[in-house]
C-alpha cells in the first residue's frame, strides 16, 4: 500500500482538478463553517482566560468608612493583617482610587467626577489573600469596626466560570453541527467523483484490487479537502482575531483580555484537526453511500 502512496495522492489531485468550481465552493463553505466554530471556541477561551486572571489576583477590597481617623485606620490594618489567609495589605486613598479609575477610563472618568461635583470614591485596603481563603477573609473583615463594605471577586468568577461552561458546551454542539454539515458537503463532492469513476472501480476489482486500493484516493481527497478548509479558516483567524482583539481592548480596557494572536494560535489546532477528521468522515460516508 505504501508503494502506491504517491499514486494515491496523484489520483486524489486528478479527481479534485476535474471539478475545480465545486471543490472551491466546498472549500469556501468548509472554511466559513470552521471560522464560525473558531469564534465560538475563542469566546470560550477568552472567558476562561478572564477567570484564570481574576483567580490569580485573589484579592478582596475592604472599603473604609468616611469618618475613620488615622489611628482607627492603623488599628483596622493591624486587625486585617492578623486574619488567617491574608498575604498582603496596602492602603489606597480616595485620591488614589480616583487616579486609578482615571487611568482606566481616561477622559470619561473626568466627565463623571465633573457631573458628580465631588470625588465619589472611598478609601480602601487592597487585601491579598490565599485564593481558597478569599471568602472566609471577606466574611471576617466585613464585621470589623470601621469597615464600610467588602467586595470580593468570587461571585464574578463563579458567574464567569458558569458562562465559560455554557459557551464551551455551545462550542461542542457547534462543532458537531459544523462537522455534520462538513461531512455532507465533502461526501457530496466525493460521491460525484465515485459516480464518475464507477467503471474504473469495476476495472480495479477485475484486476484484483482490494477495497482499500480503490478507496484510498477518495479518502485522501476528503482528508485533504477538510485539512485545506481548516487551514484556510486558521489563516483567516490569524488576520481577523488580532484586529478584533485590538478593538475589544480599546473598548474594554479594564478587562484583562487575551491577545488575538494567542487566541488564533490556540484554536488553530482545533480547526486543522476538525477539518481533517470530518473530511475523512465525509469521504467514508460517500463510500458507504456508493456501496449501498
Amino acid at each position: 500500500m505504501f508503494a502506491n502512496l504517491g499514486y494515491f495522492f496523484k489520483e486524489a489531485y486528478r479527481d479534485t482538478a476535474q471539478r475545480p468550481v465545486a471543490v472551491i465552493f466546498s472549500l469556501i463553505s468548509i472554511a466559513l463553517l470552521l471560522l464560525f466554530t473558531a469564534f465560538v471556541f475563542a469566546g470560550g477561551e477568552q472567558l476562561q482566560w478572564l477567570v484564570n486572571q481574576l483567580g490569580r489576583e485573589a484579592a478582596i477590597t475592604v472599603f473604609l468608612r468616611d469618618d475613620l481617623t488615622l489611628t482607627q485606620r492603623a488599628q483596622l490594618q493591624e486587625k486585617l493583617q492578623s486574619l488567617e489567609g491574608v498575604t498582603t495589605i496596602s492602603f489606597v486613598s480616595e485620591e488614589e482610587a480616583l487616579a486609578k479609575m482615571e487611568d482606566i477610563l481616561g477622559k470619561h472618568s473626568t466627565e463623571l467626577t465633573a457631573k458628580a461635583g465631588f470625588n465619589p470614591f472611598l478609601s480602601y485596603f487592597e487585601v491579598g489573600v490565599v485564593p481558597e481563603e478569599g471568602l472566609g477573609v471577606a466574611g471576617r473583615a466585613e464585621v470589623l469596626p470601621g469597615v464600610d463594605s467588602v467586595r470580593d471577586n468570587r461571585q464574578t468568577m463563579e458567574r464567569l466560570t458558569r458562562l465559560t461552561l455554557v459557551i464551551r458546551l455551545g462550542a461542542i454542539f457547534t462543532l458537531l453541527f459544523v462537522g455534520l454539515v462538513m461531512m455532507i458537503t465533502i461526501s457530496h463532492i466525493i460521491h460525484l467523483g465515485l459516480m464518475a469513476r464507477e467503471e474504473e472501480m469495476e476495472i480495479y476489482r477485475l484486476l484484483g484490487a482490494g477495497p482499500l486500493f480503490a478507496a484510498m484516493p477518495f479518502l485522501l481527497q476528503g482528508l485533504l479537502l477538510g485539512f485545506a478548509g481548516g487551514l484556510v479558516s486558521f489563516l483567516a483567524t490569524l488576520v481577523v482575531f488580532p484586529a478584533l482583539g485590538a478593538k475589544l481592548h480599546t473598548a474594554l480596557p479594564f478587562l484583562p483580555l487575551q491577545g488575538g494572536m494567542e487566541l488564533a494560535l490556540a484554536v488553530g489546532p482545533i480547526l486543522l484537526l476538525t477539518g481533517t477528521l470530518f473530511g475523512l468522515c465525509g469521504s467514508l460516508l460517500a463510500q458507504y453511500q456508493a456501496r449501498s
Partner: peptide, 21 residues
C-alpha cells in the same frame, strides 16, 4: 475494460500497481 481517459502506459502500469510493484 480499459480506462479510456488514461494513457496506454497508465493502463498497463495499473495492473502491476495493484500487485504492489
Amino acid at each position: 475494460k480499459l480506462i479510456l481517459g488514461r494513457t496506454a502506459r497508465e493502463n498497463v502500469a495499473l495492473s502491476l500497481r495493484i500487485l504492489g510493484v
